[in-house]
Nucleic acid binder design. Structure first.
Length: 587
RNA sequence: GCGCCCAUAGCUCAACUGGAUAGAGCAUCGCCCUUCUAAGGCGAGGGUUGCAGGUUCGAGUCCUGCUGGGCGUACCA
């Protein structure tokens, strides 16, 4: 309907040009919107107001001219000029119900579009360091990324979901060393655990696993382990960073390359499989787990650096290698190889983003925590320096969820071992509520997450409101059989003209908005719009349910109502599927 | 200091990307279960959209300057 009005208006604009009312070279963006208020009809356009100036006449006068040019159409019962110059269209009730048949025919495909035009998109999200379990902060990125990916796939994009595994670098060494130290404690060694080591329970679990596999064959006397190690924080002249770095060197030296690798590999595998399982239970799945270590070991990072070197975009200073990111608008140049010879995380990221494009993706969507926003200019700079288009990268920042327990703010820190994990959240609140809660908020909006509220009053969560609407319809269909009727959709679709209630036309209009809403949400990367739409649709259903009985004696009326309600159920289901929430048959 | 993000009802959030009288849920106060599920419905109250200017037919939305909060500003990841 909306596209039809669009086409009509395009023709009207052409005629205005021919009549000399509009300059021939005038470009126009036709805008037709579903109205918020019923008094304004079903659709409205602001065309006359947009063109008032180029036409050199008042909006309402122009609107009158436009009205005269509109072709007769049986579907449009009335057109009127309103307010400052809006043109409102009133659609015949009977035409509104045509959507019911479309929904039922297209079923799970209803709402799909081709706005993506088959463009290949790589959506990279979560990508949390594998140094511990996911916490609730990651949950928001996971929920957003998964929903956005579904939304894009539904809208004609070719989507690949990727998790970048930061399995290289110092944090991983600290982790491996922490595991070994806990292992030594299990063996019976006594010492002060480094203040900067990882202290979570999951470290013990891996250490016990290590002990089970290797007995005490990796044991070293603690005196030997701490020999020559810089003192820890809290001791005279102590430095926790220096302390842990020295311990890493001791671990590597005392264990040897092969055994160190085993410890490293054990903890990495343990944590990664835990993350993968955690996400799967949260309804989030990846097509690809992309390893940073692999990127380094296969020489991809070196190749990227070499490319920059050849084009003269890196230089040496103070023993480090710098990339001239200021040439591309960054605040300062960035180190890619440190004076100790280690490549920075940024070096891998240059190679990684180049690699993404090399794999053939046209659009790269990175979903990052908002604390990484300062990182965007340098990555874009690198893409430009690597001779690729920086506009191919689109960074979606997700703000932190600030956790509360009642009025008290809960602190999160992976290393102190005090945090709320995603797993705990799932168990307390449930997957559906958690997914919905996260995705119902605009991603760049700061968000307060009150755990006490989420679990103690979970019945008040809006997700149940939507699910309830879905379940209610299932229940009606069950009741239908219990009362000895059979659903006859063919008759229902043929009898839609018997639907005359406001609730019914409202629902039909709402259904008709779904495809457009999906396209808009996909292009804006805003899955939260779906959540709000579903609430409104559910509200329409609940109102209708309270106002009239669906299972009535009149066959035609009964089946018409049921056809409408089945269509509502289908759309609820499609929308919920995109945001990763289940559509229960009963509650 | 500089940069990015945010500020909307008591609370948590929307507002179709510049449109008409700024909307929902929670909380508060009235009603509605002999009916297909009351996890529901109907209604009421609640607002100078942080403040001050500007842009235009029209601003919660855009521009400038403040105020207040978050984040960033590493040879960390």
């Amino acid at each position: 309907m909306k596209t039809k009005l669009n086409q009509i208006l395009i023709q009207v604009v052409e005629q205005l040009k021919q009549q000399g009312i509009l300059p021939a070279e005038q470009t126009v963006r036709i805008q037709v919107d579903a109205t918020k208020e019923k008094a304004h009809g079903d659709f409205a356009t602001n065309l006359a107001m947009m063109l008032a100036k180029p036409a050199g006449m008042p909006p309402r006068a122009l609107a009158t001219k436009i009205l005269a040019l509109l072709p007769q159409d049986s579907v449009i019962t009335r057109v009127e000029i309103a307010g400052p110059g809006f043109i409102n269209f009133f659609v015949a009730d009977q035409a509104k119900f045509a959507i019911v048949q479309r929904v039922l025919e297209q079923a799970s495909r209803f709402g799909q579009s081709n706005v993506g035009q088959g463009r290949s998109v790589l959506v990279e999200f979560v990508s949390a360091n594998p140094t511990g379990p996911l916490h609730v902060g990651h949950g928001r990125g996971a929920a957003y990324g998964a929903s956005l990916s579904n939304l894009l796939a539904f809208s004609g994009f070719e989507v690949t979901r990727e998790y970048y595994v930061n399995d290289a670098g110092r944090q991983m060494d600290i982790l491996a060393t922490s595991v070994w130290l806990r292992y030594l404690e299990i063996c019976g060694e006594a010492f002060n655990f480094p203040s900067n080591g990882y202290k979570g329970d999951y470290i013990y679990a891996v250490s016990r696993q290590l002990f089970a596999q290797r007995g005490d064959s990796l044991r070293q006397p603690s005196l030997e382990v701490f020999a020559g190690v810089h003192p820890d924080e809290g001791q005279p002249d102590g430095d926790k960073e220096q302390h842990i770095d020295d311990l890493i060197l001791r671990a590597k030296a005392l264990l040897g390359a092969a055994d160190y690798e085993q410890v490293f590999g054990l903890v990495l595998k343990d944590i990664l499989s835990d993350i993968e399982e955690d996400l799967a239970e949260f309804g989030v799945q990846f097509d690809n787990w992309f390893s940073e270590r692999a990127l380094m070991h296969t020489g991809v990072v070196d190749a990227a650096l070499e490319k920059l070197q050849k084009s003269g975009q890196v230089y040496e200073q103070n023993g480090a290698l710098w990339f001239r990111s200021t040439d591309y608008g960054d605040e300062k140049d960035r180190v890619v190889v440190r004076d100790n010879g280690l490549k920075t995380y940024f070096a891998s990221d240059i190679a990684y983003h180049f690699n993404k494009l090399e794999r053939g993706y046209e659009t790269l969507i990175d979903i990052w925590g908002a604390d990484h926003h300062g990182y965007i200019p340098r990555v874009k700079a690198a893409m430009q320096a690597m001779d690729t288009n920086p506009d191919a990268l689109e960074v979606q920042l997700v703000q932190f969820a600030i956790l509360y327990r009642g009025a008290e703010r809960a602190q999160m820190s992976t290393r102190s071992g005090q945090f709320v994990t995603l797993r705990e959240l799932r168990e307390e609140v449930g997957v559906d509520a958690a997914r919905f809660f996260y995705v119902a908020r605009k991603s760049e909006q700061h968000m307060d997450f009150d755990l006490d509220l989420a679990k103690s009053k979970s019945n008040e969560n809006p997700v149940y409101y939507i699910q309830y609407a879905h379940a209610r319809i299932s229940n009606v269909l069950n009741q239908l059989e219990a009362k000895g009727y059979t659903l006859d959709l063919t008759q229902g679709l043929a009898s839609l003209e018997s639907l005359t209630q406001t609730h019914e036309t409202d629902l039909a209009s709402k259904l008709a908005q779904f495809p457009d809403l999906i396209s808009r949400a996909a292009l804006a990367r805003e899955p939260h719009q779906i959540a709000y739409y579903l609430k409104e649709l559910a509200h329409g259903l609940h109102s209708y349910y309270n106002a009239s009985q669906f299972i009535v004696e009149d066959d035609a009326l009964r089946n018409a109502r049921l056809a409408l309600v089945c269509a509502v159920q289908q759309v609820l289901k499609n929308g919920l599927a995109i945001i990763g929430v289940s559509a229960p048959e009963s509650m």
